[in-house]
Design a protein around this nucleic acid. Structure first.
Lengths: 207, 207
DNA sequence: TAGATTGTTAATCGATTAACAATC
DNA sequence: TAGATTGTTAATCGATTAACAATC
């Protein structure tokens, strides 16, 4: 059992470490150090060692970390050493791009069903899946035991969709609609708002 | 002139405030309070007041904040009360979705040029723009005075693209490729990695 | 006026970093 | 062995929150 109260900010860095380790595996690197990892990621080596120490001892003094071993350990900690089935709600251009994205499988996810409200889209075959109507949402995610979903609908319907997902048993939502969702405390939400990222950068730009 | 050293974490919250205020404008709300804003966003009212106090006094005791006024002030602070021309590099499915996305204009951005390496994609007309070859990248963004760009290429080419963007004068990069980019200290990078967000949530899920 | 809410100060809380003994 | 690097402790730094006088 791992320590029950690890800061969420630490959890948030683990996927970044995982990404870097994955890259090192591709480069056929056998060992790395907190210093090297930090260098690549723009993070201090002390922070990396501190973060990892929440979960165990993964390195060796003098030699550092075995890349594959650390990679596997972090995959296990994040529970991405399995495949999470995922629902995508809203099959516009973004939803379609997501449905066809090849990068999920290697990192622990797989899109297994698609939903939309638009009668023109319902029934379409996309990435080997048939787009289903919103009315089927709850039953279908319950049937498939889906805990992870992605919202790529317009702003207006996002909250409604979230409510239905939660009712169906979803516990983790990745929301692309630019709106803060209201969900029960045991449901996790992460936001992706490209424009918010851009706006954060223009603050620093000269006009 | 605003205070020279406002924490970046504060800057990062301003777009979120802006988003909520925008929504309130749509709802025809004239006034709001730090308490109400905090409620909607899951942030403490004290934090909102503290954040805003870095930039000036925007509220009135007893009544709160004029929604439109605060909205305009934050737009000005973030410099999104103008339109930033933007380049998109990598015109796969994601790049295409971005090129066609209607939500940029209202929030300060406009995609003005597209680049790709694939000869099958170069020359295509997408969202009213002709996809140009990577060889034209540097000249074109210099000519157009572009400071903001988005990378939606595969992982392998992302660093190379970033180097060329920086050479051409880009100072803010939104990177969709799952790799930490090495750039000069005066260049800002923000990352969007949907899978990293998902992995951050699965930590908390029961298997 | 009474009630509400700001902007700000000081206190608290939490995260990052520096340093180093342990040890591969 | 000598050099390198871990895991951890304590010190530092920074961010959040609580509280309240000021005032609309």
């Amino acid at each position: 059992m791992s320590n029950p109260t690890i800061p969420d900010i630490v959890i948030g860095r683990l996927p970044i470490y995982l990404r870097a380790l994955n890259r090192m595996i591709q480069e056929d690197k056998d060992y790395t150090s907190s210093h090297e990892l930090g260098e690549r990621l723009g993070i201090s080596s002390a922070q990396i060692r501190k973060d990892l120490s929440h979960f165990g001892e993964f390195g060796k003094q003098g030699t550092g970390y075995n890349v594959t071993y650390l990679h596997d350990q972090i995959r296990h900690i994040l529970q991405v050493d399995r495949e999470w089935p995922m629902a995508v709600v809203g099959v516009g251009q973004l939803g379609r791009a997501v449905a066809n994205y090849r990068g999920f499988q290697a990192r622990g996810f797989r899109v297994v069903c698609l939903f939309d409200v638009d009668p023109a889209i319902i029934g379409q075959e996309i990435a080997g899946m048939t787009v289903q109507p919103m009315s089927k949402l709850k039953d279908e995610i319950q049937r498939l035991g889906i805990q992870v979903a992605m919202i790529s609908t317009p702003l207006e319907t996002a909250q409604l969709v979230a409510d239905q997902l939660v009712e169906g048993g979803v516990r983790a939502i990745l929301n692309y609609a630019p709106i803060t969702l209201a969900v029960p405390p045991d449901v996790h939400v992460q936001y992706i708002d490209p424009v918010a990222h851009l706006q954060r950068m223009t603050y620093y730009l000269k006009p």
